[in-house]
């Protein structure tokens, strides 16, 4: 996993509540047995006028008709690394293909009023920082992004602040453990296996107390 420390990135607004993971990456792309290559199909049904199919090559994808009304197709948001959205982002299916698609598309941080639990968790496993801010701060950011072409935010993870171009720093919360993992790019399987002896001891006790669980 890549480290996340500090990011200055172009912001793209997705002004909707309840963006679900089916919208982020439609089901037909879940047939892949790989972790990569989902970016061209992120938000496929909103982004394109036709229906995308898995396995289409880059040349075919480049020829697909784009929906000019979808915000992420607008020239001013090309290259965005920060996604700004509303409440309950990432609800629905647990598919980790959703953060894989967002990361492959170029997003490294997502700012929202709230996130669905499983999606929120999946972001951290992939080096994406999901940031929860109060509704009033989100409203202000939407207004600034729309009014300012080329609008960038700086996200400072060690300081736990989103810094606006006008200099205002907006603080955010992040779990200490998750922060450490992001800052260091740690694989948390390795971290867990440091406790292998404890896991084995727990398991042995459980095997004696509830043997039917180990049939």
């Amino acid at each position: 996993m890549e480290k996340f420390v500090k990011l200055e990135g172009l912001v793209a607004p997705l002004d909707r509540n309840n963006v679900d993971t089916d919208a982020i990456i439609p089901k037909q792309f879940l047939k892949s047995i790989k972790r990569s290559g989902f970016g061209p199909n992120a938000f496929d049904e909103w982004r394109y006028m036709d229906v995308g199919q898995p396995g289409q090559d880059a040349a075919t994808t480049a020829q697909r008709p784009k929906n000019p009304n979808f915000v992420l197709n607008q020239p001013r948001y090309q290259g965005a690394q920060v996604l700004l959205t509303r409440a309950n982002f990432g609800c629905g299916s647990s598919r980790e293909h959703a953060p894989w698609a967002l990361l492959d598309f170029g997003f490294k941080a997502i700012i929202a009023e709230s996130f669905a639990d499983i999606f929120f968790n999946n972001c951290f496993k992939n080096g994406i920082l999901p940031i929860v801010l109060p509704a009033a701060e989100i409203d202000a950011l939407f207004a600034q992004v729309e009014a300012t072409p080329g609008y960038k935010l700086t996200i400072d993870l060690p300081a736990q602040a989103v810094i606006r171009p006008d200099g205002k720093g907006v603080p955010f919360q992040v779990d200490a453990f998750r922060k450490e993992c992001l800052l260091n790019g740690w694989d948390d399987i390795g971290l867990t296996l440091r406790h292998a002896d404890k896991i084995r001891a727990f398991e042995e006790k459980r095997r004696i107390e509830q043997p039917w669980l180990f049939a």
Partner: peptide, 23 residues
């Protein structure tokens, strides 16, 4: 009982555990 992402599927296979915070 709850859903997990694929990284956690791998985590459970490798460690029989998940890193969790109580809800």
């Amino acid at each position: 009982a709850h859903g997990i992402g694929t990284s956690e599927v791998e985590h459970v296979m490798a460690t029989q555990c998940l890193v969790q915070k109580k809800s």
